[in-house]
Design a protein around this nucleic acid. Structure first.
Lengths: 215, 215
DNA sequence: ACCATATGTAATCGCCGATTACATTTCGCT
DNA sequence: AGCGAAATGTAATCGGCGATTACATATGGT
């Protein structure tokens, strides 16, 4: 994992400057999260894994929250990419695209619980301070609004006036579903008899079918 | 807040034993959370506020997670009480009671964000280790299942077979709504023009009306 | 009254985030 | 090429933290 020769080992290739410490720290942080959980991340260990002194990270991140925010930004970029791709790949139909967006979101959250945890944390990262984070978050919400507005224009919604309410509901539903799954709030999988991802995606289908389309 | 004479001040009433340190620590912890946020809780400060040495708390809580779990248990008891009271006060109609349960849950979460944060945290508390926490959590879920099952028996549901799916959806919806509100994920209040609690409760009504009743 | 047990203190350990002073490297400018 | 500023590393240090240990004091049952 160490991306730099270790000076302590007398390595002749040891360099004083790391070369790309910023990215190395982000990668190390992600590794720590996957190994020991979000709450066990420490700047010092990330520095150790990057083969660097404990104070070095502060040249790139003024605070621990800044490091976590950088990790979140990278994760958010991936999520945005997945969602955008799924929407683009879906048929040219607002409701089909809306559904594709939701399933892509759940797929990503369930498939990358580590990254999802970071994104949705509001205690470890400094969300308001990150323009990138807010922009990509808003972009997804705006995309949802646009899709539902277009659906309303085509008469696919029972009531066009309630688009904002529907978007709010849809976000809460997807967010709640993803978070509960990731955080292990679903001990009743054995009751439904379905694997978590299957039940979650089924729930989304039900939601879109009934709530949004007003069936 | 200090519930015990301060020995350092030469208080003649100072006692070696606190008398009720366990409860005092829980109260101090809640106060810290309300003042500085969940992530700034420390056993040492709770001990200081209780007028006790930094090691004393460990006589009552083997670990920090145990202390936070005790706080969560107390909060969960209040939530369970509110929910049970709301259900009991509602008309003798399964859907009316189901709706009352949901609104009581949201009311409590939005009215006591501090306690809700603790309950829903899975990193600070040791959820699986607390029988009380799991029991009360399960009790609410079972109550939801029973209410919907009764509603199905009375023909108030479009499809009785999907009760487990509906309960899963309803839990995710309420949880997502509450968490997003508490964590500040709703910057679009100005878009809807409604105050957060109003919009949240409206969303729940919409959800129950369309998704559950199948309208 | 006695003593086991409960409950407190004191001292200590290792780890943490953060800051400061200093060392080294890199890079733009002439 | 070389020089100096800026970037980027190290070393040492600070205060705070969770947790453990050895020891001191209070409480309550017999």
């Amino acid at each position: 994992m160490r991306s730099r020769p270790d000076p302590a080992a007398g390595d002749p290739n040891a360099r004083y400057h790391h070369g790309n410490l910023r990215d190395a720290l982000i990668a190390a942080t992600i590794a720590i999260i996957e190994e020991r959980g979000v709450e066990h991340v420490s700047i010092r260990e990330a520095a150790k894994r990057a083969g660097v002194s404990p104070g070095a990270p502060f040249r790139h991140f003024p605070t621990k929250a800044a490091l976590m925010t950088a990790v979140a930004e990278q994760a958010m970029a991936r999520l945005s990419g997945m969602v955008a791709a799924a929407v683009a790949a879906a048929p040219d139909d607002p409701m089909a695209r809306f559904s594709a967006l939701g399933h892509a979101y759940l797929d990503w959250a369930l498939g990358n619980p580590t990254h999802f945890q970071i994104i949705s944390s509001r205690t470890l990262i400094d969300f308001p301070a990150s323009g990138a984070l807010r922009e990509q978050n808003d972009a997804i919400r705006v995309l949802m609004e646009d899709l539902l507005a277009e659906a309303a224009r085509r008469g696919m919604l029972s009531s066009p006036a309630e688009v904002p309410q529907l978007v709010l509901s849809a976000r809460a539903f997807g967010y709640g579903l993803a978070r509960m799954a990731v955080d292990g709030h679903f001990p009743e999988w054995n009751v439904t008899g379905e694997a978590p991802p299957v039940a979650v995606h089924r729930a989304l289908d039900l939601f879109i079918g009934r709530l949004i389309r007003g069936a």
